[in-house]
Structures are given as structure tokens and as C-alpha cells.
Write a protein that binds this DNA or RNA. Structure first.
Length: 493
DNA sequence: AAAAAAC
């Protein structure tokens, strides 16, 4: 195996490498610096796949919430060393100031340490990057975009495509905060104003071409602006797909994403492409690898290691739907409200409306968000929740991915996520994203899965098997004490 | 209507 690796034109780096490692880059593997006498066994293992070399890397240098490994795959011959500090990344002083003063960052998280050198170092290879929920992916690509902008050139140089308008707005907020001292201009490209309202027939306003240096938007709008020649591709240096597995797989999103990428490749073949997500199933992984340019980098996490250690998962058997409602109100939220905010996920818009009505009827005030609401209402509900004015939010999978609110400690799956074309099969990716709304950046959290049929139990088991985890059961849905124990064991009470 | 984006 070592011979094949040495013979190949590829070189391998360890994400755990230190500066001392620079001299060692052509070697097959690097010892984990902190390893004991058993260091021989700790040597990074390499597997040859096609022209790619895989390197299992151990990185113990960051106090990251996750201790699990990120697998580095690199093709091409550019060596990369992880960044222990932001200074090593040769950022402009204005950006460093943004990181320290505005973002209050001290040093790179694990995914930032590994991915930022890959993003920022010529020849600016494409990157497929997977990392845990709440581990700092957004900062990776926002910093990547900001760093690559030529400040003197007032034209779009970076795009970020997001799955929902909420996510586009959230990412723009992060970018502007981080880039506060940089003078770099940015804007959202999302469909303004209307939700699902019917057009009034008002004449369209004539839109000027976009001059912002960074454009963050939803796929339909970006595609439309490009086609209308209002969004230039001529100076584009970097394209980011946030929640990339979703953007490349789901009906409606896939078409737009692929179309935009192809269009960019036509005009601007050397444009760097970054795919970021907490989840990449095997199918999407292969598809993504076909889309990126031949020489590219990949970072992956094993699905068994994707669960957040700081978030405790529970299942609760409920005899019927009413029991679910009672569990939410009288068992979980009774105590849960003291420890932070809660998101309750449901499967459909209708069950969001129904659950909202029932909870209000029995005297419990909640807010609800789903895609059929007008955009201004959606914005208001998100803002109230982010400002801490509301405590409990019911949501469809609209907020399942990417939504970042530190104070969310509790996630309740009123309905388990299932595949739309296969209602007996769980959607494990969505499950992982939902539970990732709690426990941001290593915070404590708890998830309650409410089950009320054999079908639910089967789906739950399939989820447990998929991630190789066992989910603890709350013994009796009627027993308040059982829930106190659960919350306490999650570190929340 | 699974939900989401958007013409």
C-alpha cells in the first residue's frame, strides 16, 4: 500500500500536522504528536482510491466540541498545513480585526483550521467539506469569500447559494459582521417581499446590475438574475454552496444549482467551488465529486461520528397524538422553558398549523414558521425568536438546516423525518440536521423524539442503526420525574 | 402538496 501511495503523483497531508511537519510533507504518514509509546499504531493510515489519497488524521490541538476525526482527501500536489491561529492564514488586518473584535473568535475551530488553508492557498482548489453541525462551517466559507475579494474591483466576485431565504439572510449577517472593517460590499439575492402571494400585476421595476462584491442568495433568484444579465460572472472567483448535499440532490434545487455551476464554468472555468454541509450521503458524495474540478480537496466525517456528544437524544413512546401534545406542554416544556429555547419539528405545514392551534387552545403560547407564510411574517417570527422574545417555535423542515440560534437547547421531533417518496424510511440526513439545531458550538442540549405507532418505532430503530447509536428511552410519558431525569442527564437542569 | 425556491 505504501508503494502505491509513493508512486502516485499525489501527496498527502495530515490535518494534524504541525509546522515541523512541513519538512516531512512527502512522507507517507505523520505520527500524532501527542501519541504515547504506542505511536507505531497511531500512524495515519492511507488508502488509495483512484488518484486520491486518503489520510486518517487525528487532531487534538483544538478545543473543538467534537473529538472525532475529519478525513482529508487531497488530489493535486499542493501541501497544506493546518492553521493553529488565524495569523497563519495571512489575512488582511481588517479581516483579523473582524474575527477577533466582531466575531469574538480566539482561534480556528477544527474544520476552520483544516479547510481555510485549502480554500485560501493557490491554486485555490475546489473543496467538498463535511463537518459537524455547529462546528463553524459558515465562518469557513464567509472568511474564504471575504479573503479572496479584490477590494478595488466593484463587481461580483463571490456567490453563496443557500437553501432558504432565512439562511441567506443569516449568512449575510455573519459575513457583514466578519467583514465589518473590510469595506467589502455584499447583498442578498432573494425574492423580495412576497411570500406565496399572488402577483398584483404591478409593472416590474427595472433592476440595475448588481455591483456588490459578494452575493448571497437562493438558487432560483441567482439563476434568474444571471439569465437576466443583471449578475455578472466575469469576475467571479469563488462559488459556495451551503448545505451542498441538499442543493445538489433535491428536486428543484439540483436543477438550479447545476445550471448555475455550468454557466459559471462556461464563462469562468477557474472559479473555485466550495461545497459545505454536515451531511453527505454516498450518492451525493459521488455526484459532488463529479461536479468539482479534477484536482480538488475533500473533508469527511464518518456518519457514526456525526452525532454531537453534547446533545442527548431521547425517545418517548406515546399512546396517541394527544399524549404527544401533553408530553410537550406538561412534561418537556414545563422544565425545558427554564433552560433555553425550543424548536418543535413537524412534517407538514398543516400539522404545524394544527399543533400550533392545539397548544394555544390549551393555554400554551408558541409561534410557528412554515413556507406558506408571507415572507414578512417569516422574517418577523425568526427575528422574535432570535431576539429571545419567543421561547418555543414550531417549524417544518424550513429551519431543519443551518438555522443558528445559540439559545436552542431543546429539539422536539413531533414527527420523525421520513423520505418523501418512502414514508416508511427515515431521512437520516434531515434527522441529523434537526438535532444539530441544539448544541451549537459544543453547548448542552436534548432531543425528544415522540413516537406513537409501530411505524414510528421502526423508523426510530432505523435511525439508530444508521448512525450506530442507541437512543435512550424515557420510561413513562406520564411521569414528570422521568423527564426531569432526562433533562438533568443532558446537563440542562 | 413533503418542504423548500421561484417564474
Amino acid at each position: 500500500m505504501a508503494a502505491t501511495a509513493a508512486d502516485s503523483a499525489t501527496s498527502t497531508i495530515s490535518a494534524a500536522d504541525t509546522t515541523a511537519h512541513l519538512a516531512d510533507l512527502k512522507h507517507d504518514a505523520v505520527e500524532e504528536p501527542s501519541s504515547s509509546s504506542k505511536s507505531e499504531e497511531k500512524i495515519a493510515s492511507e488508502i488509495e482510491i483512484g488518484n486520491l489519497t486518503i489520510n486518517e488524521s487525528n487532531n487534538k490541538f483544538f478545543h473543538d466540541p467534537e473529538s472525532s476525526n475529519i478525513k482529508t482527501i487531497t488530489s493535486g500536489d499542493t501541501p497544506y498545513a493546518s492553521a493553529f491561529t488565524f495569523e497563519e492564514l495571512n489575512l488582511l488586518p481588517e479581516l483579523l480585526k473582524g474575527l477577533y473584535v466582531e466575531m469574538k473568535y480566539e482561534k480556528p475551530s477544527k474544520i476552520q483550521a483544516i479547510s481555510l488553508p485549502m480554500i485560501l492557498k493557490p491554486p485555490y482548489l475546489d473543496l467538498i467539506a463535511q463537518a459537524h453541525n455547529g462546528s463553524g462551517k459558515t465562518a469557513c466559507f464567509t472568511l474564504g469569500m471575504l479573503s479572496r475579494i479584490d477590494p478595488k474591483l466593484k463587481a461580483p466576485q463571490a456567490f453563496c447559494i443557500c437553501r432558504t431565504r432565512e439562511l441567506a439572510i443569516q449568512n449575510l449577517e455573519v459575513l457583514r459582521k466578519m467583514g465589518k472593517y473590510s469595506g467589502i460590499t455584499s447583498e442578498c439575492a432573494i425574492r423580495a417581499g412576497f411570500g406565496n402571494e399572488i402577483h398584483t400585476g404591478k409593472k416590474q421595476t427595472i433592476r440595475p446590475p448588481i455591483t456588490s462584491q459578494i452575493v448571497i442568495g437562493t438558487p432560483g433568484t441567482i439563476r434568474h438574475r444571471i439569465r437576466a444579465n443583471k449578475l455578472s460572472l466575469s469576475y467571479l472567483k469563488i462559488l459556495v454552496l451551503d448545505e451542498a448535499d441538499h442543493m445538489l440532490a433535491e428536486d428543484g434545487f439540483k436543477d438550479d444549482s447545476v445550471h448555475i455551476i455550468n454557466k459559471i464554468r462556461c464563462v469562468n472555468p477557474q472559479c473555485q467551488v466550495l461545497f459545505f454541509s454536515a451531511t453527505f450521503n454516498e450518492t451525493v458524495k459521488e455526484f459532488a465529486a463529479k461536479i468539482v474540478k479534477g484536482n480538488h480537496n475533500q473533508l469527511f466525517v464518518k456518519k457514526e461520528e456525526l452525532s454531537l456528544q453534547s446533545v442527548k437524544q431521547y425517545k418517548v413512546n406515546c399512546p396517541d397524538e394527544l399524549a404527544k401534545v401533553m408530553v410537550i406542554k406538561d412534561r418537556i416544556l414545563e422544565f425545558g422553558e427554564r433552560v433555553g429555547q425550543t424548536i418543535i419539528f413537524v412534517r407538514t405545514r398543516n400539522s404545524a398549523i394544527t399543533l400550533h392551534r392545539i397548544l394555544v387552545e390549551i393555554g400554551y403560547d408558541v409561534t410557528t414558521i412554515q413556507g406558506a407564510l408571507k415572507q414578512e411574517d417569516r422574517d418577523k417570527i425568526v427575528k422574535e425568536f432570535k431576539d429571545g422574545l419567543t421561547q418555543v417555535l414550531i417549524s417544518t423542515d424550513l429551519l431543519a438546516r443551518g438555522f443558528d440560534q445559540d439559545q436552542v437547547n431543546l429539539v422536539i421531533n413531533y414527527d420523525l423525518p421520513v423520505k418523501h417518496n418512502h414514508p416508511t424510511e427515515p431521512d437520516c440526513e434531515v434527522y441529523m440536521h434537526r438535532i444539530g439545531r441544539a448544541g451549537r458550538f459544543g453547548r448542552k442540549g436534548a432531543v425528544f423524539n415522540l413516537l406513537c405507532s409501530d411505524a414510528d418505532k421502526t423508523i426510530m430503530t432505523k435511525i439508530e442503526n444508521h448512525f450506530g447509536t442507541e437512543i435512550a428511552e424515557v420510561p413513562d410519558w406520564r411521569n414528570e420525574k422521568d423527564f426531569v431525569v432526562a433533562l438533568r442527564s443532558a446537563g440542562l437542569l
